[in-house]
Design a protein around this nucleic acid. Sequence first.
DNA 1: CCCTTGGTAGCATAGATATTCTAGAATTAG
DNA 2: CTAATTCTAGAATATCTATGCTACCAAGGG
Lengths: 199, 199
Amino acid sequence: MPRPPRFTRENLIDAAVRVCVQNGPGALTIGAVARMAGAPTGSIYHRFASREDLLAETWVASMAAFQPGFIVALRQRSEPPGLAAALFPVQWARSHPDAARLLVLYRRQDFVGGELPERLREAAGKLATELGDAISEFAVSAFGDQSLAAKQRATFLVLDLPNAAMRRYLAAGIGPPQGVDELVAEAVTAMSTASSALD
Amino acid sequence: MPRPPRFTRENLIDAAVRVCVQNGPGALTIGAVARMAGAPTGSIYHRFASREDLLAETWVASMAAFQPGFIVALRQRSEPPGLAAALFPVQWARSHPDAARLLVLYRRQDFVGGELPERLREAAGKLATELGDAISEFAVSAFGDQSLAAKQRATFLVLDLPNAAMRRYLAAGIGPPQGVDELVAEAVTAMSTASSALD
DNA sequence: CCCTTGGTAGCATAGATATTCTAGAATTAG
DNA sequence: CTAATTCTAGAATATCTATGCTACCAAGGG
């Protein structure tokens, strides 16, 4: 019944992601997104209440695209434990280059600033909780240990380590080469062997 | 003979670093730095030609503070090779919290944009070259291999890995806890053992 | 004591940018 | 065909920032 949209939320968030990965989140201006999407500025305000909101949505949408698959990988049993999860971000980066750059090269804090509408605060909070819980669960199953230290170790293995290995490539705008998977696998295996040797 | 300065270059760069780590490089505006330093805006233009210059100087100064010590650590023989270098960034972060946050949480590209005055381009280029050479040299001495892959592996071990392990703490505004050193040491040792097992 | 040098102070200007607002366009139910 | 609804368009306004500019300040040498 209504006029069909030319610029959906999704279209505009895509454009916003591209602006951010090209010039950093600081360069996300309404004008820049409008140019990137080929839309007039007014159309952006039709979908988003403010620049701040759009910036936050950009982050939340990218994280929401990444996280479910990652959590599945986290629950998958692999040998050594965590290998499947640690490889997931690298593989995901190949199929989602823009969103991956956003997530790896910047931080939540660069996008989600002060006051946000309920919907976004809730979405962001839910994502954080889900991820934290999934990692804790993994730490218990992998290390049989529910201490904070075990969770930190798990976070390092499955997130920080692969991100570190990819970072330079994503910064250069290229997909992570095959060697990254090998390096990650080697590191996870090495650390797993080292710790089981302590038993 | 002249009037004694109230705001030196150093003062202002310090303030700029603090602005960046608090709100990201995008928040580095002349006004923000002026407020942080307690100076009027005009005083900043007395020292720096433009906002872009100040931003670039902020990065160059932080990197220049980090790099010499790191290079010394890189040349230091340790067992396994690279352990001393990999631990250096973590220790340095404890004594230089603001500069470390800047270097770990953001990238050169977020600071050093397009056109820069000769002095800065040269300083930035020299830093990059020195670091690259030092890492290559380390890669040869540690792995006996001057391939690009060896250099990438070395970079991962001594820079990306420790940065990844610290990142969350620096983002939260706290110094890296002792567990980080242990994790880094464990990872470097594990990977060194794994690769020597291949011989 | 005055002049020179390097500095501070902060208002004034120009250019961006965010945000608002009004007019009109595209659809379909009735 | 018309009303109701959702959207596009983009000009107009309000803010924010970077930068330029002028007046004035402090110290030491002559």
